[in-house]
Amino acid sequence: MLVVSGLGQRFGDLVALEDFALEVPSGAWVALLGPNGSGKSTALALIAGLLPITAGRVTFDGLVHGASPTDVRVRAAIGVVFQSPSLDPKLSVAENLGLCALIRGLSSTEGAARIAELTAALGVADRMASLVAELSGGLRRRVDLARALLARPSILLLDEPSAGLDESAFRRLWEFLVQSRARDGLTVLVATHRPEEAELCDRIVVIDGGKKVAEDTPDALKRRVSGDLVILESDRLDEVQSILAQTLGLSGRRSADQLVLESEAGHRLVPRLAEALPAGLLRAISVRRPSLADVFVKLTGSSLAA
């Protein structure tokens, strides 16, 4: 089990992470959900050992990270997929993975067997001679995932793993991870700003401004936004807001050219809205279930896309 407590990081005057705590039980999938600059990548960098831990504590199965001699054992138990693939673009796939096997301390026999196994499983075995620079973003990500899994890590850290991937490559990447979990019980901690990626995890830690804002299962988090969301689109939102406040006592939150209202039963609210607002004032009205992006807005007051 990965246990993080009181983790903090400053870069000069900037507080990137403050008193951050987290637990990832063996076999669990946990997502750190937050926009760019929220501190999730810093948290991952500290847990991975990319940055030295100066405030707080990280332990893995009771072994302290950052404290010699157990630090090396913790590092050996962690595999990391960074936002930018940790591959040399000027070398071939085979050369990159061979070097990584050496770096992770695998014997040549063990390294070769593991590379063959992973490249076959990830569908890149036929690209071993290709230069990494010649690979598509999706293939590069798969090779990087093979690199991270070479030394059979107990926990896999993923930092924005789908960054730069198209929908198909995104799906293939997560299919592989889901299959690995089903077969091998792979433990995963993923930092992402994509709600659809976070929803694939058992628990989500919402992070903003370097602090943990909430932690729960995806469904429980979504329940924090009550009922349905009714979205009103108009070129005159001030007028819409004013009328709704006066006639129905409703207030909502503005998002670009939309007004978002929370309602226990959206389908019942829509006719009342149509009746209260003059014809032609609204461009469109729609009802949908709340998403994790809505939960984030409700919890932090800002958007995940920020």
Binding site: S26, F60, D61, G62, L63, V72, R73, V74, R75, A76, A77, L99, C100, A101, L102, I103, R104, G105, L106, S107, E117, L118, A120, A121, L122, G123, R142, L149, A151, R152, P153, S154, I155, R172, E175, F176, Q179, S180, R183, D184, G185, L186, T187
Partner: peptide
Amino acid sequence: MNRSVTPSAAPGRAPSGGATWGTVSALVL
């Protein structure tokens, strides 16, 4: 992307002693 990979190692497994020299030799290579 649908073939099996072998299970992860036991948590906290000590790395082989070759990680240090493996890193040096990998970077030279």
